[in-house]
């Protein structure tokens, strides 16, 4: 037991360290490489103007966005997997992805001219779909099975509406929406960063405070109630907070898949399922994972960029399979 505890402590040093190294890597690689010395000079302001501009106005905002989105998706994934008692749940399971996409395309089809129309519409669509799933499933009293099935159905409905809308929209803007849907950190308006950070921090705090409730919910509704949890109210609070985190991430960066599924899963293998640890560790690891994925997306086919969702799945899936096999092997 003592060995396990000390191992756990080392993870709290290791995970922030991984995030820090990912950040450094992400800041130094790109069309114009900035080695460590140049990076340092740019930070303290003794370098030339170009390097400083690249660092502060291009790479740093993008890296911060990656951290924000990765942390949000990791945390939301962990929370959804707890509430739904399903390790295969991801933040998009309850119609959030379909709703967000539908919102974004609606904004485009209506020709809303504002720069913030797209993320805002995606945000509203995501939360709207989740709310509808919640109501349809009578989630205040219903079972998690009903919730998941309703989520899948509402998601399908949103997707079919989406296809219909895409069919009516002219081809050119449609391409940009498709690209956006695949997940992209490059197109986001970085003016959103401060607001997004505040919002994410608030939702994370709510979830983290509710970590013991999440632990209880993994035991099933009846047992959770026997242990003193007001299940309906707690589930509403948790789904709202996790849904808002997801909606925020989608609004900022489109549908980046896989992070919310695989990161909490990996953390559970490393640190166990208790949510007081799972949520912050998933945030840290999700942020690192998205930073590195974005780095790969930017440099592999430079100057072209691969959609980041493609990269997260390409790195995430084999890594996950490796961990799974190793775990099985040890029994």
């Amino acid at each position: 037991m003592r060995r396990q505890v000390s191992l756990r402590w080392s993870w709290w040093l290791l995970l922030p360290l991984i995030l820090f190294l990912s950040l450094i890597l992400s800041l130094s690689f790109g069309a114009m490489p900035l080695p460590l010395s140049a990076l340092w000079k740019a930070i303290v302001g003794t370098s030339d103007e170009t390097a400083r501009t690249i660092l502060l106005e291009i790479r740093l905002p993008r890296a911060l966005l990656a951290i924000l989105v990765g942390a949000s998706l990791g945390t939301a994934g962990g929370a959804f997997q707890g509430v739904l008692r399903n390790p295969l749940a991801d933040p998009y399971l309850l119609g959030v992805s379909g709703g967000a996409a539908l919102g974004a395309v609606t904004a485009l089809a209506l020709g809303l001219p504002f720069a913030w129309a797209l993320p805002l519409a995606a945000f509203i669509g995501a939360l709207g779909a989740l709310g509808m799933v919640y109501l349809v499933a009578h989630a205040h009293r219903g079972s998690t099975h009903t919730l998941i099935l309703s989520g899948v159905m509402i998601g399908s409905l949103a997707s079919s509406l989406l296809l219909f809308l895409l069919w009516t929209v002219p081809a050119d803007p449609m391409r940009s929406v498709l690209f956006w849907l695949m997940g992209n950190l490059g197109t986001a308006d970085t003016d959103w960063l401060p607001l997004g950070t505040l919002f994410t921090a608030a939702a994370f705090f709510v979830l983290w405070c509710q970590a013991p409730a999440l632990d209880l919910l993994t035991q099933g509704e009846e047992t959770a109630a026997d242990l003193g949890l007001a299940v309906g109210r707690s589930r509403l609070l948790l789904l709202t907070a996790a849904g808002a985190l997801t909606a925020m991430a989608v609004a900022l960066a489109g549908l980046v898949g896989f992070v919310g599924l695989v990161v909490p899963h990996v953390v559970r293998l490393l640190l166990g399922p208790a949510h007081r640890r799972l949520l912050p560790a998933s945030a840290l690891l999700g942020a690192s994972f998205l930073l590195l994925s974005d780095l790969v997306a930017r440099i592999v086919l430079a100057p072209a960029e691969i959609p980041i969702g493609v990269v997260t799945a390409m790195i995430g899936a084999p890594f996950f399979l490796y961990l799974l096999r190793r775990k099985e092997g040890r029994g």
Binding site: P87, P212, D215, L216, T218, Q219, L227, P273, A274
Partner: peptide, 20 residues
């Protein structure tokens, strides 16, 4: 089937929830 693989001490500690 107890679901997620909690260690026994944390699993038992869930019983303290009503006194949170």
């Amino acid at each position: 089937a107890p679901g997620y693989p909690f260690p026994v001490d944390e699993f038992v500690a869930m019983g303290r929830y009503p006194w949170k």
